[in-house]
Design a protein around this nucleic acid. Structure first.
Lengths: 343, 343
DNA sequence: TGTTAGCACTCAAAAGTAATGAGTGCTAAC
DNA sequence: GTTAGCACTCATTACTTTTGAGTGCTAACA
């Protein structure tokens, strides 16, 4: 059987209608809302064909049709026309994001915020991962007799520092320790440094430092490990209650929130998505998200891929608009954190 | 009318039963479960009295009784015996918290985690507020031609730093600017510094620095402002679905999540609670939390009050156990971050 | 005088029943 | 190939009945 023009037209109409209302679409109501010059009976025949081809399903015999995952996939890949964002929305985004220009963390947070507001979905964003990023700067600074601050600056990603309680020390030994650490680890990637036998570097070689090193090195390692963690921002989860299929179904709602609360798992899923603007639909996701769709995009800092952001919501989301929003926001962030050549 | 012994006993039994099951408690079932040597009819008479006195209510004529807010208040203040935590739970807490010893942020996060696990409620914790904390250390560090790191260490609370993009600069001018900032602001409280006319300090006086200062000072101010924000950790919100009164009532659940998602509001509520272990019940809270109870406690760092943590859940929470857990965890944190005198 | 058995009454929740209506599939005529 | 007609399906809604845990009241009892 062939996906001829009329079938496509009907399929598109069913998808559009279902995305809008969330109710199964019947032949009669379709012929009323989208006048395409054919009778409900004809639509019925076509729908029946579309069902056979796997694009539509039936919740039960006497209900209307709803799009299958395959239909959404077709829609996203071929049918929908990515709408250009209206100028005023673009302005609103740029304006909101420029408020925190040059502060990546806040920008990411604001981006997630915007995203959920503009899509009425649950949004998320993750800050840069640092693991393949080279250490650019390591420093130990004296604060008071028993406090020093350890600071680690990776090439991309978040600066980390930590105030450490240590036994009394001399500034000289602190400076020396800082220099040794810098010498040993600077320019290497986070992963590379963590693969080294850091503790041994200090316990065997340098007697004079071992006291201070004993206080500092474990924290250094822990801090490096913590830099591998990605921060997850999430926003707009209450939006789910605006959708009748959730607000009328406690079990679905429960699953949704349980899924969201497993932050590690969610972070994993997001981190491991392909780059670019990616849409995954229903079964294309893992079991716990199988009746959701996700759209993600990544943003760059200085031209390198570093973080992701996106939305999660029901399969009947407004793929066209939502994709545009996400795309625009991620590009906007990337632009903001581009090295300005002319500077 | 008098709250005699028997009435108290019955009231206590009703409360205990209701906290356990969430179902209104009838006279017959009460006489069966708590044998107190009197007939259901007598219990009925007493319950009727208790209702007149405002301790019990009736959802409808033919239903059992449920405790009023007043009853919970009495229970919390006088009737319940704060249970000592079993030794193994204490151990579990100490063990889990000691994993991240000396890293306040992670400790707080873990504490919130533990709290929700042990109480089956939604837990929250806020990291220290820095606004009355004195600035202990300000530094500007060169990273590369167009990047410097600004670091601010307050006496208590979180070290903040930020990588800033700046126009090309000399290390000398950076050092000078750092010294000026240190000279101007060190030892003052955050609030005090923010009250000053910081921008003017630099634009008028020091011509030589104005280029660099123009890049750095606005970020300095923003960073200070950001230090006033408190970070809120939240955990275990899905626990709400285990409670029949929520999992059977979408509207309640919605309100709960909407309330939780308003982070600023929630943070405000928590920050402004009295110190010590505080329980607020139902109407004692603001409108949006009026059918919840909250228990909070604060923890100290170096003996100063700095942060809070607690739980939010239904009014029929296990006040005795939950209070003990919160109290123990908050004390444990305070102990961990106590200055060790003997050091 | 406090306690209790007995009884009529109440009412939410559960179960059963019927009506509604949007939908389908099939067939026969156009 | 298209469409009107019709029998059939089935979730949803409304209505009714039944059930049972509960109450309040009264009268008798210790």
């Amino acid at each position: 059987m062939d996906l001829n023009d009329r079938k496509l037209q009907i399929l598109q109409a069913v998808i559009a209608e279902f995305i809008n209302t969330g109710e199964p679409v019947g032949s009669r109501s379709l012929s009323r809302s989208h006048d395409m010059g054919i009778s409900p009976a004809t639509i019925r025949n076509e729908m029946s064909d579309l069902e056979e081809m796997g694009y539509l399903t039936h919740p039960h015999t006497s209900a209307g049709r709803i799009p299958s995952d395959k239909a959404y996939r077709l829609y996203v890949d071929e049918l929908m026309n990515e709408s250009e964002l209206p100028e005023e929305e673009k302005q609103a985004i740029s304006h909101k994001l420029s408020e925190t220009k040059s502060e990546l963390d806040s920008t990411i947070e604001h981006a997630a915020d915007l995203l959920s507001q503009m899509t009425n979905l649950t949004s998320f964003a993750i800050a840069p991962r640092a693991n393949e990023s080279k250490l650019k700067y390591i420093n130990l600074l004296p604060v008071d007799e028993t406090t020093v601050v350890l600071m680690i600056v990776p090439e991309t990603g978040k600066v980390m520092n930590k105030a450490l309680k240590v036994s009394p020390y001399t500034e000289d030994s602190l400076e020396l320790l800082g220099k040794v650490m810098t010498h040993n680890y600077m320019g290497k990637t986070l992963n590379a440094v963590l693969a080294m036998d850091i503790i041994n570097d200090f316990t065997t070689d340098m007697e004079s430092l071992s006291g201070l090193a004993k206080d500092v090195v474990p924290s250094f390692i822990k801090t490096l490990e913590k830099m591998l963690d990605v921060d997850l921002y999430m926003n707009g989860y209450s939006n789910i209650f605006n959708l009748p299929e959730y607000s009328g179904n406690m079990e679905k709602t429960q699953n949704f929130f349980r899924m969201l609360e497993d932050k590690n798992r969610l972070t994993d899923v997001i981190v491991n998505r392909e780059s670019g603007v990616v849409v995954t639909i229903g079964d294309e996701n893992s079991e716990d998200m199988k009746d959701c769709s996700l759209i993600t995009a990544d943003y760059k800092v200085n031209g390198k891929l570093v973080g992701k952001l996106g939305v999660i919501g029901p399969k009947r989301m407004k793929y066209d608009e939502d994709t545009s929003v996400i795309k625009y926001i991620s590009e906007n962030i990337s632009d903001t954190f581009e090295i300005k050549e002319e500077k």
